[in-house]
Design a protein around this nucleic acid. Sequence first.
DNA 1: GCAATAGTGTCTCTGAGACACTATTAG
DNA 2: CTAATAGTGTCTCAGAGACACTATTGC
Lengths: 321, 321
Amino acid sequence: MPNIKMVDGKPETLNERGQTEAEFLEWYKREEKDKYEKPSVTTDMLLFTVSDKKESNNRKVPDKELKVLLIKRKDHPYIGKWAIPGGFLNINEGLEATAIRELKEETNLDDVYLEQLYTWGDDVKRDPRMRVISTSYMALVDSTHLKVKAGDDAADAKWFSIERNILEESEEKKDGEVFITKKIDIQLTSEDGEERIVYTLLEKTHVQQRGIVKTRVVNYPAVIDTDNMAFDHIKILNYGLDRLQNKLEYTPIAFNLMPQYFTFIELQKVYEAILGRKLIVANFRRKIKPMVIETDIVREGSAHRPPKLFTFNVDWTLNSF
Amino acid sequence: MPNIKMVDGKPETLNERGQTEAEFLEWYKREEKDKYEKPSVTTDMLLFTVSDKKESNNRKVPDKELKVLLIKRKDHPYIGKWAIPGGFLNINEGLEATAIRELKEETNLDDVYLEQLYTWGDDVKRDPRMRVISTSYMALVDSTHLKVKAGDDAADAKWFSIERNILEESEEKKDGEVFITKKIDIQLTSEDGEERIVYTLLEKTHVQQRGIVKTRVVNYPAVIDTDNMAFDHIKILNYGLDRLQNKLEYTPIAFNLMPQYFTFIELQKVYEAILGRKLIVANFRRKIKPMVIETDIVREGSAHRPPKLFTFNVDWTLNSF
DNA sequence: GCAATAGTGTCTCTGAGACACTATTAG
DNA sequence: CTAATAGTGTCTCAGAGACACTATTGC
C-alpha cells in the first residue's frame, strides 16, 4: 500500500523513498538522469517522387519512374558515398518534427505526405562514430512542386531513378522448419546518368512450427562498406519500397505523388512505376474509379484524342478506409 | 574533388579538415560525440496472449479473450498506474535485444513472435523525468507456455482482458477537405477482476485535396494523467491492436497464440477474440484450411462429437506470402 | 483515311459472406 | 433417442485479371 501525504491540501502519493512526485523529479534529474550512457537518435528520410521517363519516340506518352533523393556525404564516415537525407534529433524537438525539418532543408516543402517506417537500432555499430538509433520516414512529393532544387549544392544531392527486381526464390526445409530466400536486385541511376548504384539483397524468411516468421534482409555479398551507399541505407530504401508498394494497393497514397489534376493514364503509369509491372488499362480504371472525380477539363495539344482530367475524391475515404 | 592520401600503401580519402577516417573518428569521439544532449531510449512491449473465457454453462465450448500484460508502476512518475513492460536501452545492446531482455524478465520466454510497432517520440514531454524516445514492440505468446507467472511479484503484474469497440463515426467537410472522427472505447479488466481500466480515444483522420491522409489518436476527454494507465501506453495498446487485427487477415500470425495442436473451433475463437466479432464457421474453415494440416489425433473427453486436431502448415508461406 | 491514344464491355475465375444442411460423439 | 458440437455443400455477390472492342482527336 502506497503512502499518501497531504501537500497544500492535496493528496500526494509517496514512493518507497518517501518522495512526492515533485521531490522525485527533482532528485531524479539531479542524480539519475545521466547515470547511463545514452545513444544518439537520428531520423533518416526516404524522399520519393515520380517523374517522366525520357522517351525516345516523342509521340508516345512517356512512362514514369520512381525516384529517391540521395545526398553525397561530405565527411567521414562513408565520405563520398550516397546517403538518404537525415540528421540528429534535437533534445527539444519531436521525432517527426526532425524529419519535417530535414525535408524543409532539402526541398523547401513542408506540407507533404510523411509516414514513419521503422526504427533501426539492432546493430550497435551501424555508425562507427557512436551508438546511433535511427527512425526512418518516407515522404512523397509531387514532382511538379519540386521547383526548388534539392539542397544547396546540386552536385551533392541528386535524384536517383529506382529499379527493383526480385530475381529468384529458393526454399529449404529442415527439421520441420522452412527457410525462404528471395534475391532482390536494386539499381539506382542519377538523373544526369553520372552515378550508378547496384545492390543485391537477400531477404531471408524463417517459418517455424508454431508460425513464428522472422524476416531478415542482408547484403549479398555480405559487404557494406565497399558499396556506394552509406550506412545501412540500402536496407531502409528496400523497406520503404515494400511499404510503398503495399500501401498503394489499399490506400490513396499515390495521389500524393500526383498534381491536383491528372489523366488516368498518368496515374496508371505512376502505379506501374512503383509496382514495377504493367497493369491492364480497363481493370485499373475500374479499381481506381471510385477514388477519383472526373472533371470537365480535357488536356489539349496532343496529336490524338485528348484525355479528361481527374482529381482525387476526398469522400472516397469515408466508405472504404 | 576529395583528397587522397596513401596510408600504409592503401589510399585513404581525406575530409575537408584533411583527416583520414581513423583520424576523424578519433577526433570525433573526443570532441564532438557529446556536444549535443541526447535523449533516453526505451523499448515498450505489448505482450499479448489469448485464454479461455469463464463460461457459465459448463457444457459449452468456452470463448477466448485477448489479454495484455500490464505492470503496476512502483515509482514516480505515474506511481500506482498500470504500464506495459519496458525499460531503458543499454548503450551496447540492440533495440530488439532490449525488448527480448524485457520479455525474458517478465515471462522467462525468449523464442516468441516479436514485431516492432512504432517509435513514439513526437511529444517531448511524454516522460516528465527527461526526453524519452520509445520504440514499441508486440509479442505474441501461447498461453499454455505461460506456466511461469509473470514478474516476481504477482500483485504488480496482471493480465488484462481487452475489449475494444468503435463507437461512432462522424464526418465533417470543410474547404474541400474531410475530417473523420472515430470514437474508440477500450476496456481492460484484470484476471482477478480487481482492476478495471476504461478509456475513450478519438481517432482523427484528415483527408486533404491531394490525398494527404494524417491520422492522430487523442484521449477523450483530453486528459492523460488522471487516468489509470501510465504515459501514452493506451495509445500504444490501441496501435498494437490495430496492427494485430490487420496482420490476422493476411498472415499466419495467429498461430503464435496457439499451442502446437489445436481444434478448428479454438483457432476460430482466437480470431473472434482479436477481431471482436463472430465469424461464420464454414467460411472460416475454407479460408484457413490451406494454412493448417489435419492430424489423425482427436480430442476425446467431450460429451459430443470429438474434434480433430490441426497444426500449422509451414509450407503455406511458400505459395502465399 | 491513318496513327495514336482514350476509354468501355464482358467473360472467367476466385474468394468472401450467408445459411442450410449432414456427421459424430456421450449418455 | 437427444443435446451438443463438428464439419460440409452450395448459392450469391463483388472484385481481379484478361482481352477484345469502340471512341475521339490531329493531320
